[in-house]
């Protein structure tokens, strides 16, 4: 095949895939600007004839509190799980390379267990988790939601960071050992700075996962003032009827923060992934 034709087909495929991804986003954006009647009476992909900000206005007032709640819960959760996950990943890394065969097998076994734990569906743990949080007296409390999320996201952080940490050249860690540095110092001074792109990738991934987590806040929150954004957005599709233009507007507002994070930190996300293949040169 000639290079021109090959490139054309290549780009055509990219355009089609991008379009498939963008159509729902486009629909979500424009329908929030329509009046409720127009949403029901015009096709979903046709832009509004008259722009109205009223839906956004109403929804934003209602979502202000859940947005704030989500930020309060998600940002510390993501930071803590990435940091502790990275520490855990380094711990297992050092165990794997220890001289004791028993310890390195144990480390492999425990790490597999943790990896497996990240695949447990939340729903399966719902009742014991809720009972645990209640017995800690943390139901309907930021700390309770954070605690529950950390249970799931620290292993995720460890799993992702273990990939990024294993890219740091082993000789650097050995040199630091010979220089008399302890593991905490090696972690803080060398591992963390050298796997920073990976750290940011993991952080972004966990922010987005936690932001979209629906079940944990649904179960652990009992008062409307404590609701997180996914639960608040879901409440727009009610049992008795749906106000479509407000639902679309709510969806837009709920996705602004992950979207903004991705736009501003996206290049670090990519850089982290590149570092995986390039021998840690993404620094």
């Amino acid at each position: 095949m000639r290079p021109v034709i090959r490139a054309t087909l290549h780009y055509l495929a990219l355009v089609v895939i991008s379009a498939i991804w963008l159509i729902p986003v486009y629909a979500m954006l424009i329908n929030g600007f329509k009046s409720n009647l127009a949403v029901l009476s015009t096709p979903v992909l046709v832009p509004p004839t008259s722009f109205s900000l009223s839906a956004y206005h109403i929804v934003f007032n209602a979502l202000e509190r859940p947005l704030l709640n989500s930020l309060i819960v998600v940002i510390p959760t993501a930071l803590i799980s990435t940091f502790l996950g990275a520490m855990g990943a380094y711990f297992f890394y050092t165990l794997t390379y220890s001289f004791s065969k028993f310890l390195s097998s144990l480390s492999d076994f425990l790490f597999s267990l943790i990896t497996l734990a990240t695949f447990i569906p939340y729903q399966a743990t719902l009742i014991p988790l809720t009972r645990l949080v209640v017995s800690m007296g943390l139901l309907d409390n930021y700390l309770g939601i954070m605690f529950a999320m950390l249970i799931f996201y620290i292993p995720t952080g460890a799993l992702l960071m273990s990939m990024f940490i294993s890219v740091v050249p082993r000789s650097i860690i050995e040199a630091a050992k010979l220089d008399g540095a302890g593991d905490l110092k090696i972690f803080m001074k060398l591992i963390l700075p050298l796997s920073l792109p990976g750290f940011i990738s993991t952080l972004i991934f966990i922010i987005i996962e936690a932001w979209n987590n629906f079940f944990i806040p649904l179960v652990l929150v009992t008062t409307p003032g404590m609701r997180l954004i996914p639960v608040a957005v879901e409440s727009y599709t009610g049992g008795y009827g749906t106000i479509y233009n407000e639902t679309f507007a709510a969806a837009v507002i709920a996705s602004i923060i992950p979207l903004a994070i991705f736009i501003f930190l996206g290049r670090y996300f990519i850089r982290g992934l590149i570092a995986l293949g390039g021998g840690g040169k993404g620094v």
């Binding site: 050249p169 650097i172 050995e174 050992k177 010979l178 001074k189 050298l194 620094v283």
Partner: peptide
Amino acid sequence: EDRKIGMVFQTWALYPNLTAFDNIAFPLTN
């Protein structure tokens, strides 16, 4: 760390995130 060894690795294994000064000072900071 207790053997009082200085080692130059084949790849040199310098700490890429630290300056030459901090690289050389690293063993002393411990």
